[in-house]
């Protein structure tokens, strides 16, 4: 994380280079790609720059949410996402507060990132101290940081309360050029971290004691996972909103648990995520409803459809009397040998 901050600090000091980089990625690459897509398909929406950024955000969120969420869900740590989202809210409030009070411009997403990462380490310390993912520790951090946020919002003359709404419920319009650039960098960081730490993370998720016996530093990787969760939450918060952001860590993963094989289930969760975010953003634009809520509803619909589908297929194979052969019970990798 220190590296990340140094990266950001040095990045901010070389503003022009960053601007150029953002231009290349957002306009030359992504913009042209989407323009071409708009021409080919005849869908005008794909050509609007703010919708292009919204779709970019949708892709990033669908990728990194399930990627990190897969480890959380299978360790029954799903609630940590919600806790860190609320601490990110405190971070946003702190950023807006600083901007309103001291006449400086700090992107609220950056303060959110710092506060959420700190909260992640705090939660992990509490967990190490109490020895379990106690609901109580999580609830204290969750409500405590939301309290800090609400106090900060009302501590100014009320001017920042308007800005905060967008972060609470999410909005397509919050994906400014700066935010899109931050989201891209964060997604890259998450992707690289997970691919480098994939093996220790999967080992710890499957068998934490065994991982310790195998000499893997469980505490360090737990901290990494918590901080990565914070990063995902902050990245996805712009569109999803604080209150719903945790859904992207959980719902697509839940939809893909019937896939056999961990790697494949992660891929499945990303697919479910992609379908949800892209559909959600599109519907949200056309009917002018909240993007976060729409995405979550689509994701839950996918989850429900998959669950019903798997059950139906299983029941069908039982009725045909083929349940005992492994190939036909394969949809969930299941068997009746217990």
């Amino acid at each position: 994380m220190v590296l990340l901050y140094t990266l950001f600090a040095s990045a901010l000091s070389t503003q022009t280079a960053v601007d150029r980089g953002v231009e290349v990625v957002l306009d030359d690459f992504w913009g042209s790609l989407m323009d071409a897509l708009a021409d080919v398909t005849g869908i005008d929406v794909l050509g609007f720059p703010f919708m292009q950024r919204a779709y970019l955000a949708a892709l990033c969120i669908a990728l990194i949410g399930p990627l990190v969420g897969s480890f959380l869900v299978h360790r029954e740590m799903a609630m940590i996402g919600d806790t860190l989202a609320h601490s990110a809210f405190a971070g946003v409030a702190a950023g807006l507060f600083v901007n309103a009070t001291f006449a400086v411009t700090v992107p609220p997403l950056l303060t959110a990132l710092v506060v959420a990462a700190a909260a992640a380490l705090l939660v992990q310390t509490l967990v190490d101290y109490t020895g379990a993912y106690h609901d109580t520790s999580l609830a204290i951090v969750l409500t405590g940081s939301f309290a800090v946020g609400s106090v900060l919002v009302t501590a100014t003359d009320g001017g920042i309360a308007v800005g905060i709404n967008a972060y609470l419920f999410g909005s397509l319009a919050t994906v400014t050029r700066v935010n899109a650039a931050i989201l891209l960098v964060l997604s890259l960081v998450v992707g690289v971290c997970v691919s480098v730490a994939y093996r220790p993370l999967i080992y710890i998720t499957f068998d934490e004691v065994g991982a310790r016996a195998a000499g893997i530093s469980v505490t360090r990787y737990n901290q990494l996972l918590a901080v990565l969760t914070a990063v995902v939450v902050v990245a996805a918060m712009q569109i999803m909103g604080v209150i719903l952001v945790a859904a992207m860590l959980v719902v697509p993963v839940a939809a893909a648990t019937s896939v056999r094989g961990f790697k494949r289930s992660v891929a499945g969760a990303v697919c479910a995520g992609l379908f949800s975010t892209v559909t959600g953003v599109t519907v949200s634009y056309h009917y002018d409803v909240a993007a976060g809520g729409t995405i979550v509803l689509v994701a839950i619909a996918v989850y429900a459809a998959v669950t019903v589908g798997v059950r139906a297929r299983h029941r069908l194979s039982v009725r045909r009397g083929t349940a005992t052969t492994r190939t036909t019970t394969a949809p969930d990798g299941g068997s009746s040998d217990e």
């Binding site: 999967i202 065994g210 195998a214 790697k263």
Partner: peptide, 30 residues
């Protein structure tokens, strides 16, 4: 190390047998 209760622990993680056995190589190849 084979911890207590692995025979009974309900693990809903969609990991396959081969994926789990591959973990044996992880300490040498993280």
């Amino acid at each position: 190390y084979v911890p207590q209760d692995v025979a009974n622990a309900k693990n809903e993680m969609p990991i396959t047998v081969r994926e789990a056995v591959r973990m044996g190589r992880y300490p040498q190849k993280l």
